[in-house]
Amino acid sequence: MSEQLSVIAERLVAEHRDGVKFHKLDGISSLSDAYRVQDAYVAATVGDDTRAGYKIGLTSKRMQQMCGIDQPICGTIFSNRVFKSGARLSMTDYGRLGLEFEICVRMGRDLDPRDEPFTPEQVGGAIDAVAAAIELVDDRQADYSMLDINTLVADNSWNAGVVIGEFTPPPARLNTLEGIAYQDGAELARGYGADALGHPFVPLAWLANHLAANGRQLRKNDIVMTGSIVTTRFPTGPFTYRFDVAGLGSVEVSGS
């Protein structure tokens, strides 16, 4: 990594510490550079923690339209930011907390390197469980009309944690499962597994190939958030959100 990219990663660490609003960072000229900055930022932030897995973002047309981006992105999930259903959050811990409603998968074995790209069927065969889940994102008061994908990726794709329901054996057809999001008991929106690029295994294969291109791999017990199937919600006061996925169960989070 160039010295300039290392300096940008250090700046990101400082801006999170000091509560600086999200803004475009100069000096990141490509997605490749953005992921290099992300790696340095994660390394500087993780401390004594470990990597629990990955988030994949912008896997539905509605989320891509919301952010003005036409491809998936990914980031690291830290182990100490993995919460069980029923977690209570403090909004003051985030620049601006957003909630995304997703299907989470858990790897049942390592995906060993191979010469050919992974297919959705191959990565799907390597998972051992799935769960309803809510990703916590922190967009740090971003202005979406001026969103810069390179800075977003460098900023760990905004992952701030996950809340996960009970894992269950994967059903035969994840793409047909319906998810319903509720706020304080009232239905907000619905989505389907197919909203994640047609099938949750499609973004999972994208992630596996992205990691392989950078000398890494998905490993047993990694959890992967496969992308929001309901548009992000930003609570502005005390809240309780629940996400029900037919055949998988529910996950709930509250806070103030």
Rank of each mutant, 00 (worst) to 15 (best):
V251D: 03
Y192K: 14
Q141L: 12
C67Y: 09
D112Y: 00
V162T: 15
A205W: 02
V245I: 15
K55E: 11
I56L: 00
G75K: 12
W158D: 00
P200E: 08
G193R: 11
D18G: 07
S145M: 07
D112N: 07
G47D: 09
V46T: 13
G179T: 05
P235F: 03
D244E: 11
I73K: 08
D110G: 11
S2I: 07
A40F: 00
G193K: 07
E10L: 14
V224Y: 01
P235T: 03
L99N: 15
N150H: 15
R11C: 06
L97T: 14
D143M: 09
P72N: 12
G124W: 08
R81Y: 13
C104E: 12
A40Q: 15
D128R: 05
M66W: 09
Q141V: 11
G19L: 01
D139N: 15
G198N: 09
T240C: 04
S79T: 14
G98V: 07
I180Q: 06
Y35E: 09
S256N: 06
H16F: 04
F167W: 10
V162D: 06
N214M: 04
N214Y: 01
T151P: 13
L97H: 11
E100F: 09
L5Q: 07
G215I: 05
G161T: 13
V7I: 12
K220V: 06
